[in-house]
């Protein structure tokens, strides 16, 4: 049963707390049942439990006639509890051209939101017939969490460019780092990594530096990193 703090009791508490020494004040503020009141009368309980029915029970067909009436017994109300979407629900875009589910003239809207069932419910609009314009929010209304915009592959580098990139990296791997080369040739870092390889001594040096840093880690940091790594592996194996 929900506890309700009523006004006179609260002020009483405050007065007691201000007058009491600090130790008892703490006690009073945290947990003292004297300042709260239960919903011990039938009227309050009834009022608390009197919640309106779910909108799908109110006007299933969304026509003005049926809005007023209750659903008949031969209607199916599909109103599942919220749950994680199933991967066996193929999104509309992934259906092949020949699939009957695509060929059937179903609105793509239905399938776009097939993984989550959304209904815009507000108590004021539920009663009015204007509620039938329930539009699912467009994807643009959600903030993107992608990082900075990725460079689109433009295929502008010639074999000569790649040769030059390799030569530069071979000559001076410190100044011609992967990032610098990517900036210079206006391609992604992944492409630079695909094209050229640093000389063996440079790789060795980088590795030694890394080892030195790792040697300074304490047991907690090491354990935390290992655990994070393992958790990521479990995620990719579908175990999380």
């Amino acid at each position: 049963m929900e506890a309700v703090v009523t006004r006179p009791a609260l002020s009483c508490c405050r007065r007691a707390a201000s007058s009491a020494p600090s130790s008892t004040r703490l006690l009073l503020n945290s947990s003292l049942p004297s300042g709260t009141r239960q919903k011990s009368t039938a009227a309050r309980t009834r009022r608390a439990l009197n919640i309106p029915p779910h909108p799908s029970f109110l006007h299933p067909n969304k026509t003005p006639e049926s809005v007023a009436s209750r659903p008949t017994s031969d209607e199916i109300i599909f109103n599942p509890p919220s749950s994680a979407p199933s991967v066996f629900h193929t999104p509309f875009k992934f259906l092949p051209k020949t699939d009957p589910r695509r060929m059937a003239n179903l609105t793509s809207n239905l399938f776009a939101s097939s993984t989550t069932i959304q209904y815009n419910y507000s108590p004021s609009s539920a009663a009015s017939p204007s509620a039938e314009t329930t539009t699912t929010p467009s994807p643009e209304s959600f903030p993107s969490i992608e990082g900075p915009p990725v460079l689109k592959p433009r295929h502008h580098l010639t074999p000569q460019d790649i040769e030059q990139m390799r030569r530069l990296r071979e000559q001076d791997p410190v100044t011609n780092s992967v990032q610098n080369l990517a900036r210079q040739f206006q391609c992604s870092k992944l492409f630079v990594l695909m094209c050229c390889q640093a000389p063996k001594e440079h790789q060795q040096k980088i590795k030694e530096q890394e080892e030195k840093v790792k040697a300074r880690w304490g047991p907690r940091r090491r354990a935390a990193r290992e655990e994070r790594h393992r958790r990521m592996e479990m995620l990719f194996n579908g175990q999380l």
Partner: peptide, 28 residues
């Protein structure tokens, strides 16, 4: 575009994003 390919919940943005991508690939 306008179509949702996958959806997932996770304790961090990176985990949730990877999970959603995995779900999308699985549903493919």
């Amino acid at each position: 575009g306008k179509d949702k390919l996958g959806e997932a919940a996770g304790p961090s943005l990176e985990v949730a994003r990877n999970k959603a991508a995995m779900n999308a690939l699985k549903s493919w």
